[in-house]
Design a protein around this nucleic acid. Sequence first.
DNA 1: GATACCATACCGACCAGTCGGTATCTAGCT
DNA 2: AGCTAGATACCGACTGGTCGGTATGGTATC
Lengths: 200, 200
Amino acid sequence: MSTQERSEATRQAILKAARAVFLEQGYQAASVAEICARADVSKGAFYHHFETKQGLFLTLMEDWLAGIDRQLQALRAEAPDMASALLHIADLAGEIFDTANEQVPMFLEFWSEARHDRAVWQALVEPYRRYEAMFTEWMKEGMAQGAMRKTEPRDAARTLVALSVGLLLQGLLDPEPSRRVETPRHALHLLMDGLREAPR
Amino acid sequence: MSTQERSEATRQAILKAARAVFLEQGYQAASVAEICARADVSKGAFYHHFETKQGLFLTLMEDWLAGIDRQLQALRAEAPDMASALLHIADLAGEIFDTANEQVPMFLEFWSEARHDRAVWQALVEPYRRYEAMFTEWMKEGMAQGAMRKTEPRDAARTLVALSVGLLLQGLLDPEPSRRVETPRHALHLLMDGLREAPR
DNA sequence: GATACCATACCGACCAGTCGGTATCTAGCT
DNA sequence: AGCTAGATACCGACTGGTCGGTATGGTATC
């Protein structure tokens, strides 16, 4: 293995260990020493690869957000037709949410740290605004294509996001996986019914 | 002021200061010394009134949960008729959520700490289950009274809770208060439309 | 004089980050 | 090919400081 490859491997080992320790103990409680021990790496190596503990945390967050970006882009590419997409999204919701659930604890960790750390806050809010804008566009398309009734697209998008976030967090409280699949499916159906056509 | 009163005042001062410091810095980062300084009280006083830092945190959480309990009981007492309650809840949602928003940061603090602390976790999950059961009952009543269409009441309740939690967290990201009022109103309307009668 | 209430000094553990040093590799020169 | 200067990757002891919690003592109230 070349030096470069070894270096990259060390870096990845640190990132992996850090993710685990942050999840177990939380960002604040996690110690650099333990991350190093878990990665089987010295403190020198740690500070060679990362500026500070916060810097490492931000790197982790950027990687995570990049993953979300990719998933969303893929989702959009797969279903260019909003009408059919919205019809099926509720049926898929169960699965989607069950897989996403692994990442939720880290998401919570990012969020709660963001509340007390300017840099983390910035790095989290900016993508959130992007996602909100993106979903709003989707909603507009859905309305234009007649797949859903006309309402404030931005509020509709925010509602979808809020419900998703709520469902994911709810999943954390639930030990039984069946509810983590069924409730989102049901929930998205309910919301989509409300979004489809005015009843009454 | 009697000794008892003074003692109680000290206790309350500590609780108040602790709330502020926990909100500003988070549970882990908050130091007992700073809480004492903020409450203008010595460390001796602190450890006279509370077992540990965690004990204080749990007390804070119990008080907070007791407040929720009271609010929910009041809500239920005010609207014994589920049919009309569900019809109006969406219109009221904006206000409700705007007032509730002050408490959300503390809620997040409880939740994220619960992920890493057994005792906190237990103290948080148990009431959550109670609330879920309570909402489920409300949904059942709503269905029995013909105010909403028949679906899984438990999933419907969980959906309502999830959406609420999501909206509250979303409010944290939003600096402009108008969205904090409008989005919940809109969101609850959408969900209630889905809950009312099957469209298609 | 017993007890509840509070103050202060202090302890051992721990923590993020530093720093002097080593080992390995690469580039350029001869 | 052999040699060397410098860069890169890494090591681990150490520092200055903070933390939660305790031990001990004082004082006002019952």
